Computed example of a mutant assay.
Amino acid sequence: MAEAYPIELRERVVRAYEAGEGSAAAIAQWFQVGEATVKRWLWRKRDEGHVRPTKKAGGTRSAIAREEIDAIVEELKDANAVEIAAAYNRGRRGSARVHVSTIKRALHRFGYVVKKSADGRSRFVAPTSSRSAPRS
């Protein structure tokens, strides 16, 4: 995700508009930012009294438990992500099922490293980084 524009730029843009140096479109062109961006900064200044950016949200945390992934990897030994996802989804229905990409992100988060086998399929091996240590 791109970083937010600096607060100094945001304040200069708002000051220029408030000083009557042009329309939102003209100021956007002058400062080389989007017109909608200028309007959002003006609205924020009007409604909240500042132009500071909002904090990044971070999304929804995965519900996949480390213990369950560890057990599946231990049981299947040299399985690839598709096989691990199939084992995870076995017995689950509807929204409780997860996509292979979700399993891959969980494996990465828990410190599993991907390697390629001779046949070109992705394989997962035991955790090898300090990230793999259980969190307290």
Rank of each mutant, 00 (worst) to 15 (best):
D47M: 05
E68M: 04
G59Y: 06
V51N: 05
A24L: 07
R12A: 11
P53D: 06
Y5R: 12
A126M: 08
Y17E: 12
E3N: 14
I27L: 14
R46F: 02
S62M: 00
I27W: 02
R92F: 01
E74I: 14
V73K: 09
E67I: 14
K56Y: 07
R97A: 00
V100L: 03
V51K: 02
K39S: 07
H108E: 13
E18R: 12
L42S: 09
S95C: 04
D47I: 05
A19P: 01
T128E: 09
V98Y: 01
S117D: 10
V98Q: 00
A85Y: 00
A28I: 02
H108V: 15
I7K: 10
K45R: 15
R10S: 08
E83G: 10
A118W: 07
V114Y: 06
A16N: 05
P127T: 13
Y5G: 05
I72V: 06
S62D: 00
E68L: 11
R109E: 10
K56H: 13
S23K: 06
Q29P: 03
Q32V: 10
W41Y: 01
V33A: 01
D78L: 14
I64M: 02
R97K: 15
I7S: 03
A19N: 12
E3G: 15
K39G: 07
V98L: 02
R61F: 03
F31H: 11
F124C: 09
V113R: 08
P6Q: 08
R15G: 13
G49E: 06
R121D: 05
R46I: 04
R135I: 14
E74K: 14
A96I: 01
S95G: 12
F124H: 11
L76W: 07
G49C: 04
W43P: 07
W41D: 07
A2H: 11
R66V: 13
Y5I: 06
A63T: 13
K55W: 04
V73H: 03
D119N: 09
F110E: 05
R123V: 14
K104Y: 00
E8I: 05
G111R: 02
A65N: 08
V100I: 15
L42W: 01
E3A: 15
A79V: 10
V33Q: 08
E8C: 01
K77I: 11
R131I: 15
D78P: 01
G49H: 03
A118L: 13
G120T: 08
R121A: 11
